[in-house]
């Protein structure tokens, strides 16, 4: 799958208008520019709206070549979800269930990168429902970085979206949101998996606002 379909482009533009109307979302480019080489945007995850927010903040050309990595078990369940994930949105669906999966998630994501797609990736692996700001990272980010070391890993801190559209909610509460894009990371030569994942997690957390919940 290379290049967005007309339907995907139209729905991405409409979602961007909607996201701006509800959240007034602004990108903060703190450490990188909007234009760059092929990228993996890795972000904190607590809401279905997260990838819409990141995608809205991207330049339209970059948005056109960026796909969100999402769980196949969730998005393939039911015809409506399948239509949304497959036709309306630009997604790369990966199977999270180790036992029953048919396709290797890493291979699916690498194929997308090799086809020239930037990825929006949630390294926690699932939506964070705890009071912790960020869960432990799963290995996916490391495996991607090790397999495609030339791809830039851009940390993106999504602020407030979990208040706008928490898990299980249907209607969004209008609140101002920001996405802070930090300096890109690369896997060092011979860097240990755990060391790298800790470093990536720390880099993402460093973009978060102060503890008292107020924006910077």
């Amino acid at each position: 799958m290379s290049g967005a379909s007309l339907l995907q482009r139209a729905s991405a533009a409409m979602l961007a208008v909607l996201a701006r109307a509800v959240t007034g979302v602004r990108p903060i480019w703190a450490g990188t520019s909007p234009n760059g080489p092929l990228r993996i945007y890795f972000a904190n995850h607590a809401s279905h709206g997260d990838f819409i927010l990141v995608s809205t903040c991207l330049h339209p050309a970059e948005r056109g070549r960026t796909a969100a990595v999402a769980g196949a078990d969730y998005w393939n369940a039911g015809r409506v979800r399948r239509f949304i994930a497959g036709r309306l949105l630009r997604t790369v669906l990966v199977e999270r269930n180790w036992v029953e999966r048919r396709a290797d998630p890493l291979a699916v994501m690498l194929a997308a990168l090799d086809a020239g797609e930037s990825l929006i990736f949630f390294p926690e692996g699932t939506r964070n429902m705890t009071e912790e700001p960020l869960l432990r990272f799963r290995s996916g980010l490391y495996n991607l970085a090790a397999a495609r070391p030339q791809v830039e890993l851009v940390p993106c801190w999504i602020e407030n979206m979990s208040r706008v559209l928490p898990k299980g909610a249907f209607l969004p509460v209008p609140l101002l949101c920001r996405v802070v894009f930090g300096a890109p990371l690369k896997l060092e030569d011979g860097e240990d998996r755990k060391v790298f994942l800790d470093r990536a997690r720390t880099a993402l957390l460093a973009l978060a606002p102060r503890k008292d919940g107020t924006p910077q």
Binding site: G24, N160, P166, L171, V173, P174, G213
Partner: peptide, 27 residues
């Protein structure tokens, strides 16, 4: 009013239990 309320609520402490009240304020 919509824009002002959105700015104001962003700065307040809200919890999940406030959802219906907040939605009611806007909608």
């Amino acid at each position: 009013s919509f824009a002002a309320l959105r700015e104001y609520v962003t700065l307040t402490n809200t919890r999940r239990a406030d959802r219906w009240t907040l939605l009611g304020m806007f909608l």
